[in-house]
Amino acid sequence: MPDWLTNIVGSDVAAWLDYVTNGRHLQWYASFGYTIGAALLGGAVALVLGLTAAALRRSRFLPVRLASAGYANIVRGVPDVLFFLFFPLAFEQALEWIVATGACSVEERAASSALWPPCRDANIFFSTTQYFLLASVTLGIVYGAFASSVIHGATAAVPRAQLEAARAFGMSERQVLWRVQIRQMWIYALPGLSNVWMLLVKSTSLLSLLQINDIVMWADRLGAPNFQSRAGPIHPDWRWRYYLVLLVFYIALTWLSERFFRWLRRRAGRGMIAAEA
């Protein structure tokens, strides 16, 4: 802390400033990037998956329709945290199984006493970045199921008369789909998609369950009672203060997202009757 700043703010405030800008706190601030990154990446994956699944749900081929409906209903029917734990573990095991088919000899398999992986060479360790990507994709898969049902409903909500009018103008089926149905679908889908986005933002708090050093894990570490003066001031259990910061952070994020979606809705609804509803 430079002297001139201490002179301006006084030594008490300077000590606090010192505390909240020490190395561990800076790492905590940096870890907010994981949360926001996972939300954005997960949101993008969810949107793509949602659109794909909603499109497949209108397919002429029955098994495809069933698969899409099954994806939407099963993923929505179990808690997000279950899928969030299950998918990365299952993905890792599937990879290890594929590696094991090449890497493990019969003798090695027989010699291995552990239940998994089949042999030591097949053991995969993911880096933090890989876990982060996996977590984001998992969030995308979970909320893609929610998004697909929103988009499916919104596509059906476009007034039939408009589609018929478009056909009467001589548009081809493809033109009707892209220029009228999908163009208008967004207005009906946006309220639901904004809901899905809020859910996704809130479930980014689960990242620490996949051993990612996210904001929750740092809050836990920084707030834990500190008895060593070299690690900053000695303090009792301050965890609730740190969690309070996270609570405020998430509320602020919700508030910002709300404002963003309100703006988006107004923009998407320019000149549309449905936007006023």
Binding site: K202, S203, G223, R239, Y243, Y250
Partner: peptide
């Protein structure tokens, strides 16, 4: 209503538990 709907249940659990601990 806004505070509890706008924040994750996961953090609320941690928050209340650590408050109770303090």
């Amino acid at each position: 209503i806004y505070a509890f709907r706008g924040s994750p249940l996961f953090i609320q659990l941690f928050m209340v538990y650590s408050l109770m601990l303090s």
